[in-house]
């Protein structure tokens, strides 16, 4: 059992099966579908509140997504702890500035990679909240509920993502 938990990688089918079962558990135990991106919106609201005070909570968006720690925020914290545990068990905790595929195409300069990641993150955060969910909330939870929004979103995520990936890496 321990050697299984210490493996560096599991079959994608085992991982997918596990995520499907964890999704079922979320519905039964918490009456909620798994999702991640609203936790980032709430965190952003909490940070803005530190600078601008309570008026932030009067913004229409933060009246819907109150800047507080909720179930989904704890879920994202859980992801951090779970991934850390998994990587620690398999000895995969390493600090890395530049991913190897990126370095092979664009060089190993960390500043260029960090600035690109920041810009990518801005689009990702903006788009996730615009679409009302991310690869978890729409891509897994939406599709498995047979929601039209989930299937449309996952098509748009991968269509937009593939188009830009081919532009970046020149096909």
């Amino acid at each position: 059992m321990l050697s299984f938990l210490a493996m560096a990688e599991w079959s994608p089918y085992v991982v997918g099966l596990g995520i499907g079962l964890v999704s079922c558990a979320a519905f039964v135990l918490s009456d909620k579908p798994i999702g991640c991106s609203s936790a980032f919106a709430r965190t952003s609201g909490m940070l803005e509140e530190m600078y601008r005070g309570r008026q932030v909570r009067e913004m229409p968006y933060y009246r819907q997504f109150v800047p507080e720690i909720d179930w989904e925020w704890m879920l994202v914290l859980g992801i951090v702890l779970g991934s850390f545990t998994s990587a620690a068990l398999s000895g995969e905790l390493h600090l890395e500035w530049v991913p190897s595929r990126w370095a092979a195409a664009f060089g190993g300069n960390p500043v260029i990679r960090l600035v690109t990641a920041l810009i990518g993150g801005i689009f990702l955060g903006f788009g996730a909240r615009w679409a009302g969910g991310c690869t978890s909330g729409h891509g897994i939870s939406g599709t498995l509920q047979l929601a039209v929004s989930g299937w449309l979103a996952v098509c748009a995520f991968f269509a937009g993502g593939a188009a830009v990936a081919f532009l970046l890496y020149g096909g």
Binding site: P99, W102, T116, A117, I119, G120, G121, I122, F123, L124, G125, F126, G127, A128, R129, W130, A131, G132, C134, T135, H138, L152, A153, V154, C155, A156, F157, F158, A159, G160, G161, A162, A163, V164, A165, L168
Partner: peptide
Amino acid sequence: VGGLIFGVGFAVLG
């Protein structure tokens, strides 16, 4: 529209 914006970020951030 939101999904396509997300897709841009998905590819750029990785």
